[in-house]
């Protein structure tokens, strides 16, 4: 029997990592990618996680997004310890609570932008009309109403990333997790993407967590965490950014 881990109670904390380790095993060699990360993310925060390449940013984001399981430590999403959850419940919970934006967009290539945005809603078993209306609304929101029947291959990188933002918003999640959302884009397009995220944070009250190695992008964030060799070496608040 695994020992019962107490659920966290603080309502303000939406996502919490408690002494989280991730150790990759490659044959006999153990590669510790994260070494005892503890971090509380408040509801409505805009967090940037920075650090050099290989410092463990993506590993951390996968764990925060419940896409991976920690080797040690606990992860609480909305006060729920995710290691206690059944696979199907976690899938639904994650789908409802977190929207993902990936560096490589990760759209399904064989279906249209519209279908891509609608897909999460189908997994969540929304009724058809609601799903259709919501997908159209979101594509309009990211300025792609005209292109909604194009497949990903028929869209530019920036357009694809906007589709993926629309998709991440499909089930109206409280948290948006973005791993280098502008990493594959030129700086102007990248800025547009960041502006959309900023607006979502400011106007819609989403909790935004972005991962970036570009220090210039941290100016959007309220909280900035710096990773080095799998450990958080610095967390600071950005006084210049506030919600007003």
């Amino acid at each position: 029997m695994p020992k019962k881990i107490p659920e966290q109670k603080n309502k303000d904390i939406i996502l919490s990592l408690d002494n989280v380790w991730k150790i990759y095993r490659m044959g006999d060699v153990e590669v510790p990618a994260l070494k005892g990360i503890s971090m509380n993310i408040k509801k409505g925060d805009f967090v940037a996680i920075t650090g050099a390449s290989g410092s463990g940013k993506s590993t951390m984001m996968n764990l925060m997004g419940c896409l991976d399981v920690p080797s040690k430590g606990q992860i609480y999403l909305k006060s729920k310890n995710i290691s206690n959850m059944k696979e199907s419940d976690l899938a639904t919970f994650r789908g409802k609570t977190i929207g993902f934006i990936f560096q490589q967009y990760n759209l399904i290539p064989s279906i249209s932008a519209f279908e891509n945005v609608k897909l999460p809603l189908e997994f969540m078993e929304y009724d058809d009309q609601t799903a259709i209306d919501r997908a159209k609304y979101l594509l309009d929101l990211v300025g792609l109403k005209e292109r909604m029947h194009h497949t990903p291959a028929q869209l530019s990188g920036g357009q694809q990333q906007r589709v993926s933002i629309a998709r991440s918003l499909a089930s109206d999640p409280e948290i948006i997790l973005a791993d280098e959302p502008s990493g594959a884009l030129d700086s102007i397009t990248g800025k547009k993407i960041m502006d959309i995220l900023y607006r979502l944070w400011k106007d819609e009250g989403k909790t935004i967590i972005i991962i970036t190695h570009e220090l210039s992008l941290t100016r959007y964030a309220q909280t900035i965490a710096e990773l080095k060799d799998g450990q958080i070496i610095n967390i600071r608040q950005n006084k210049k950014v506030n919600k007003k």
Binding site: G65, T92, R94, K96, L107, I108, F123
Partner: peptide
């Protein structure tokens, strides 16, 4: 495989 990962990230259950 990659699409399966994407689907799972956006809410697909094993059953789906």
């Amino acid at each position: 495989t990659k699409e399966i990962g994407i689907m799972k990230a956006i809410g697909a259950k094993n059953k789906d």
